[in-house]
Design a protein around this nucleic acid. Sequence first.
DNA 1: TAAATATTGACATTTATTCTTCTTTAGTCT
DNA 2: AGACTAAAGAAGAATAAATGTCAATATTTA
Lengths: 146, 146
Amino acid sequence: MRHLADQIEVMKNKGFKVTHQRLVVLDYLQHSKKHPSAEMIYNDLKEKYPTMSLATIYNTLEMLMKINLVVDIGAPEERRRFDGILVEHSHFFCTKCGKIEDLTVPGIEQLFEKAKAAHPGTINHCRLDFFGFCEECQAQEEQAVE
Amino acid sequence: MRHLADQIEVMKNKGFKVTHQRLVVLDYLQHSKKHPSAEMIYNDLKEKYPTMSLATIYNTLEMLMKINLVVDIGAPEERRRFDGILVEHSHFFCTKCGKIEDLTVPGIEQLFEKAKAAHPGTINHCRLDFFGFCEECQAQEEQAVE
DNA sequence: TAAATATTGACATTTATTCTTCTTTAGTCT
DNA sequence: AGACTAAAGAAGAATAAATGTCAATATTTA
């Protein structure tokens, strides 16, 4: 599931067409650490692909989520934010400035397995998120108190 | 932080007024296991409090989140869903029917502590969520394959 | 290469959430 | 207790993210 060729296979197997636009969005997401919103993707891609519409970005994201190549990270903002880097990792959300950081906390795997075993249905994805102040906002906060 | 009197203290200490509406919303959330949206809260409360407006629900929720008496559980839906029961627990989201279940997975505490220690800023809240098919949807899925 | 079918893109629409204005209330001071 | 002031509430309008529509176009498969 790491190479584009594999992902093209996944799309085909699930009955979806492999379009230029889909590959562009997928490639963008897999090389971005920005956790972009649909509109950020649109803005970044429209320079190179000026005819691509925002609706296509939404359609493509929905389709990529359906086949589990992209996830909605559940950011506490109006806009949905997406991640195409599916190596297991957590997110940290700064509740002051809105920054989103990647974070690796060892031990999620075990919890995931425990939950799978305990749940009567099927669990196929988990997320572990943290909320607080990032380093910069925390420093500002401490200055304000002085 | 379990009794209403304590929560009133929190509101006062942070400089917020303790209004009838705020207490009603807080009480509702702390006794509901529905993980309600703002509109669900509004609909449930308007029978008893017909003059309360939806905007007040939103304002109150935002304020209660600010003082950490309520959390947005980050449900994968258009509508935001809230939880006022702050005993540490996880959520399971059925990606087929949208059902939200409470789930307790032992071991989050340790991950939380690890993350706190590793992060340069301040972490004051974490969430561990699971996604998949609930028991009923899984059963339906299996029938469909036959 | 052509037919059948799925996807794209521009625009219209929906609707969750926020904003605005005016009125009411909570908390405080005398 | 009565009055003051700033915050909060009510009601409805405004905003904008996200989705739906549909003709035009691209892709697949034979």
